Structure formats: structure tokens, C-alpha cells
Computed example of a mutant assay.
Amino acid sequence: MTTAKIQQLQSSLASVLGERAAVTVALGEVTIVVKAADYLAVMQTLRDDPALKFEELIDLCGVDYQSYGEGTYDGPRFAAVSHLLSVTHNWRLRVRVFAPDDDMPVIASVVPIWRAANWYEREAFDLYGILFEGHNDLRRILTDYGFIGHPFRKDFPISGYVEMRYDPEQKRVIYQPVTIEPREIIPRVIREENYGTK
């Protein structure tokens, strides 16, 4: 977006949302951070207010900030980040909302505002464990129904807990604990006597 367009969007966001959103601009993109308590009302305003008119939700994803900033970050752990598009005004916006409770991350569902959020919120639930309050069909979308845990969380074990495979003797899919034998990997170093010289 051009600088004039960004300034116009910033001005519109400030006048319509006021204190309900913290507006920042970085790398030519506008981002607002909204409190979880104000999230649903702000999203409704972003869609319906004629000065903003964000008709389309392009994307929504979960984020785990557990190890953000190499461990120096001390804020809430889970967030939902949405990207909105206004076809009317030809501008885009990123909206970030943090779940207030790290142990039980709950954020309001925006499916009643943008139906496109349905599968995005299911994906964030499946992969990060973020619960979207008011979602009418919040169930796993990518992992198996019996899957334990949320694989995109930073504290999820790299190898997982169980593996699934087809057992030809039992003629069905079975689950068994992951069996990965640790091994030491030593890099092979090749030295050349005259490397880097002419």
C-alpha cells in the first residue's frame, strides 16, 4: 500500500475503533492488536462500518509465542491472527488477538461475521488447541480423530506420542507408541589444504 493509503487507513481505524485497538505499521502493513473481550465487537465493526468496510476474511491462523524473541517474550502465549481485505477501499489489515489464559486458550469465533473463518478456526483448534467460543462445529480437521495433543505447539514433542500404521495381520489401522532410536550424528568434515587461496 502507498503511504497515503496507509495513513488514511490508520486515521479511519483510530476514529472508528478508538481505544479498542492498538494500531502499528511495519513494512508497509497495518496491524491492530485487540483485547479478547473486544474482539467480536471490533471484528463486526471492521466489516460493517462504511469507513472501513472489510468485506473479506482472507486468512485466520493460530500462533504460539512460547519461545518468541528467543525466550525474552513475556506476554500471552496463544493468539489468533486474521488478515482482512476491503474490496471497497482497496486496503488490507492484520488483526491479532491474544487468548487471555495460556492453559485454556479461548477466543470468540468470527464465523457469524465471516463464514470463511469456519475451517481456519478448526485448523487453529486442531494444531494449536485454541478454542473458538461460539463455533458451531469445532472439531479436528487435519489430524486423526484419536490424535492426542496439538502438533504446532512449541512444547509438542518432535516425534509425537504415537504412530499410526496398517497392520496386515489384524487387517486394520493400529496405534502404537513411537519407537525412535536416538542416534548420534557426527558431521563429516572435508578439509582442503589450499582452500580459499589462489
Rank of each mutant, 00 (worst) to 15 (best):
Y128F: 15
L142A: 02
V110E: 04
I148Q: 11
L9P: 09
L127C: 07
F156R: 06
I32T: 03
A99G: 10
G18V: 05
I186A: 06
R191Y: 08
E192G: 10
V30R: 02
L9S: 11
R20Q: 14
E56T: 14
P182R: 13
F125T: 01
E192S: 05
E70D: 13
F132S: 06
R165M: 11
A116I: 02
W91S: 08
E163S: 10
A26R: 14
F78D: 04
G129Q: 07
M164W: 08
G62Q: 01
T88G: 00
K154E: 13
V33H: 11
R77I: 07
D103V: 04
L40I: 12
L9C: 02
E56C: 08
A99N: 06
K171D: 14
Y65N: 10
G75N: 14
D126R: 03
F152S: 13
D126H: 05
V173T: 15
G18D: 06
L13I: 05
R139W: 00
G160C: 07
E184N: 11
Q66A: 14
E121K: 01
R165C: 08
K5G: 07
P182F: 09
D103A: 15
L40D: 12
A37N: 09
E192T: 08
L138H: 01
Y175E: 14
R115H: 12
I185S: 07
R96W: 00
P100C: 04
L131R: 10
S86D: 05
